[in-house]
Design a protein around this nucleic acid. Structure first.
Ligand code: MN
Ligand code: MN
Ligand code: ZN
Ligand code: ZN
Lengths: 134, 134
DNA sequence: GTCATTTTGAAAGTGATTACCATTTCCTAT
DNA sequence: ATAGGAAATGGTAATCACTTTCAAAATGAC
């Protein structure tokens, strides 16, 4: 899983990866730190968690997700890939979409506006199937 | 322009609308406040600017834009409508897209995932035509 | 082992946004 | 016009995620 990853795998990074493998929800830095410290008082400090997440995002192993509330979330991704979500207002669960809807538009936008796309944010909010049923 | 708008148009709101009509860039609450205070020491305070923006967004006259940095931006929109942007990393200018790419997907997502869409965020980053030319 | 480099983490700092709360303004009934 | 209650205002303090600082601890090449 970490084949050919071009980065120093510090203790902090390894611990963060462990936690992200466990929970498969979107987790904030503080969530991750809290989970670590629950089962080990000697787990990395919050600063290290932030730094590790930064490294892991640069390396493409983790993606950062902006939900528009001031709190960034993180999750494991297939190296170098990314995806978007349907986030439920009620239960905060999220459906992970299997394909990016934006990448296929890059060519058209480049042609129409002369704009060179380098990144994007896209998240969809609403009510999930389970919560609608209630 | 304000026909049939269902909200109390306070002094603060009017002043905010004035500023947003002038600048047609995405502006933060603090930008707006700063512009007001530049030309009038008695202009509404920052708290009022935030409150006014909240009302105007509810009324559908203004849209809030999340760019993923912790600072919300605002801009006038055609009442009840919204749109998305191509934001240039270099000069921070933004192209306002004429159609929402997500709304047309709502039906498909509803059918595929049983997810009822209520909102979304979508912003695209990169380098604009002008900055690429340099 | 020695010493330079990297990593770590508690505490302090930052910056946007929100909560408080006392004062002012507005509106309506008399 | 006036009194009184509701709404709006604005300075200050608080909040909260995140970043910076800097000194101590871990690492690793020689
Ligand atoms: Mn996901
Ligand atoms: Mn716009
Ligand atoms: Zn995408
Ligand atoms: Zn849209």
């Amino acid at each position: 899983m970490l084949q050919g990853v071009d980065m120093r795998l510090t203790k902090g990074c390894k611990k963060v990866l462990e936690v992200l493998e466990q929970v498969q929800e979107l987790s904030s830095a503080q969530d991750i730190h809290g989970l670590m410290r629950n089962e080990d008082d000697k787990a990395p400090g919050l600063t290290t968690v932030y730094r590790s997440l930064e490294s892991l995002v640069s390396a493409g192993l983790v993606q950062a997700v902006a939900l528009g509330d001031g709190e960034r979330r993180y999750e494991l991704v297939k190296p170098g890939e990314h995806h978007h979500h349907l986030v439920c207002d009620k239960c905060r669960s999220s459906v992970h979409l299997d394909q990016c809807l934006i990448e296929e538009l890059e060519e058209g936008i480049k042609n129409k506006y002369g704009f060179q796309i380098k990144g994007h944010i896209l998240e969809i909010f609403g009510t999930c199937k389970v919560c609608t049923a209630k």
